[in-house]
Simulated scan of single mutants.
Amino acid sequence: MGSHRRPAQSGLDRSARGSTVYILSALTATTAAGLAAAPAGAAPQDRPSGTRAEVDRLFEQAEKATEAFNQAGEHADKLRDDLADLQDSVARGQERINTMRGALGSLAGAQYRSGGIDPSLALLLSSDPDNYLDKASVLDRLTTRQAGELTALQRAQRDLSQERAEAARKLVDLERTRKAVARHKRTVEDKLARARRLLDALPPGQRAAYDRASRGGGRDGIPDLSGVGEASSGRAAAAVAAAMSALGKPYVWGANGPSGFDCSGLMQWSYARAGVGLPRTSQEQRYAGRRIPLSEARPGDLVAYRSDASHIGMYVGNGQVIHAPYPGAPVRYDPVGMMPVSSVTRV
């Protein structure tokens, strides 16, 4: 993708969503800790391995809901822009119709003053036939112009009616999208709260193991990427530098910087600093450039995870990615093989 693309704008209003998402991040901050031995006789789902699997499942579901939340928010932003443009167009159309009606009124007055009566009768009554013929010529031109103006007015009224109907449809769609945003938000909150409760119930000595387990990279099929390599382009290098500047910033779901990020928000923000606009969601970002094999990855390439691309990071060399992992875990480096890789994209 070329660098001619405009930097993407932020999705949902950051100030409106900021307080909620930062509170959620604080509530889930304990997830950076790990696991210890479960008490004897604990049920399978209460043992460390069962807790790890359940927390991973909840985080994965929350991340999917977060990307759906981001997508719905982006759609809502577009609808708001479209609706504003339509409303402006409707206002301009109404103004034009008012002007055209005024012009038609003036033409009608001119027609009356030019002798708008039966032409044969007017000729018989005229004491000056030459003057009458001059007036008739003007009247004919006025009538032709009036007919044209009337046709234009009718067309403008039809266009205005269509734009008003389209604006009404956009308004309904916007309301539906707002409800979808709220629904995804509730889903994310529920999953994160459940994961937090599971982790909070573990003995203190066990929590660090969860974080260590989440950073594992020993998966089959991961090529040797120990060489640092160079970025594929100047904009990719600039995006890597931007992502590195965000190291340590908190994971905040639904956020795309600068003080907090979710996974796709970090990618969008980093490339925006390089002058390149990326879509908002990880599912869309995987198509934002040319697909390449993982073995050819270079710094700045986007690495999408899981079959549905519900998580995404940026390759930075030496077999590492930089990404926003999950609530409680700040932006950090992790092995590229930390999760199943679904695609690598060069922007």
Rank of each mutant, 00 (worst) to 15 (best):
Q268F: 01
L278T: 11
R219N: 08
C263F: 08
L247T: 11
A231I: 06
Q283K: 09
R207H: 13
A193S: 14
Y271F: 15
A243N: 07
L278G: 08
R215P: 00
Y287L: 13
S232A: 14
A242M: 06
L198S: 02
A236T: 07
I222K: 10
A241R: 13
G248A: 08
R235M: 02
A274R: 05
Y251G: 09
M267T: 15
L198W: 02
A274W: 07
S245V: 01
L202V: 15
D200F: 02
Q283V: 12
C263Y: 09
M267K: 01
V228Y: 01
P223L: 06
D262C: 08
G217D: 08
P223R: 10
A255N: 12
R219I: 08
G217C: 09
D262W: 07
R194Q: 14
T281P: 02
I222C: 06
A209N: 07
C263I: 09
K249V: 04
V240N: 05
E230S: 15
V240T: 10
A238F: 01
V188Y: 02
V188P: 02
T187H: 07
K249Y: 07
S270L: 08
R273L: 03
G248C: 07
T281M: 04
L202N: 10
W269E: 06
V188F: 04
S245M: 03
G221R: 14
A239T: 11
R215H: 13
G265I: 14
N256F: 00
R280E: 03
L225H: 05
G217W: 07
A209F: 04
V240Y: 03
P203V: 09
L199F: 01
A237M: 02
L247P: 02
V252G: 07
P279I: 10
V228S: 05
A238W: 00
A238R: 11
S226L: 03
P258T: 12
L198C: 02
S233C: 05
S214G: 05
S245T: 08
G260E: 02
F261Y: 14
K249E: 13
Y271S: 04
R235F: 07
L199Y: 00
P250A: 09
L192M: 13
G216F: 03
G277Y: 10
Y271D: 02
A272D: 15
L225C: 07
L266I: 11
W269F: 15
S245K: 12
E230Y: 04
V240A: 06
Y210N: 12
Q268S: 13
Q285V: 10
A274F: 09
A201N: 08
G275F: 10
G229P: 05
A241C: 00
E189Y: 01
I222Q: 06
E189D: 14
Y251H: 13
Q283E: 13
P204I: 04
E230P: 00
Y287C: 00
R207C: 01
S282K: 08
R235P: 01
G218Q: 14
L247D: 04
M267E: 15
V240C: 06
P279T: 10
S245C: 00
A209T: 14
T187S: 13
G260K: 03
L199P: 00
S226I: 04
R197S: 12
L198Q: 03
A255V: 11
D262N: 11
R280H: 15
Q285C: 10
G265M: 12
N256T: 15
G229H: 06
S270M: 09
G216H: 10
M267Y: 00
A209Y: 03
L202P: 00
L266K: 08
S245N: 12
Q283P: 00
R207P: 06
G216D: 12
R196V: 11
R196C: 01
R286V: 15
L278E: 09
